[in-house]
Amino acid sequence: MSRQIVSANRLTDGLVVFRTAAGTWTERAEDARVYSVEEAEIEVAAASREGTVVVGVYAVDLEEQGSAPSRLRERIRATGPTVAYGPAAVISPRRAAGA
C-alpha cells in the first residue's frame, strides 16, 4: 500500500516543510509523519486551513521501501538543489580558466 508524507512551503520564508505527528511543521523530511493515502488526504485538508502558516499543502508519494519520495522532483525538493551553490561552490581560478 502506498505511503505518503504531507508537505508545503512556509508562508513567511517559503522554505519546504513537512507535517509531523504532533501536527507541527519541520524542515527535516525524515521527521515527517508517514500516512496512508486516506490519512494523508484528511491531513492535507486539515493543514490547508493554516493559510497564514503554509502555502500549497499536498501529499508526496514515498518509495515502496525506505522513506525517500518516489519522484525525483520530490526528492530534490526534500533535500535541496543537487549542486553546490553560492559561496560554497566558488571554482578555483585555475580550474575556472580550464587551464
Binding site: 508562508l11 520564508d13 519546504v16 493559510g51 497564514t52 500549497g56 522532483r73 525538493r77 538543489p81
Partner: peptide, 28 residues
Amino acid sequence: RRLSGDLSEEQFRPLRLMNGVYLQLHAY
C-alpha cells in the same frame, strides 16, 4: 495583507507575480 491573512494565496499570487515574486521548488 497576505501575512495577516487578509489576502488568500489565490488572491495574492497574481499580485506577487506582477512584482517578480515566485514560489519555486525550495523557496520564494
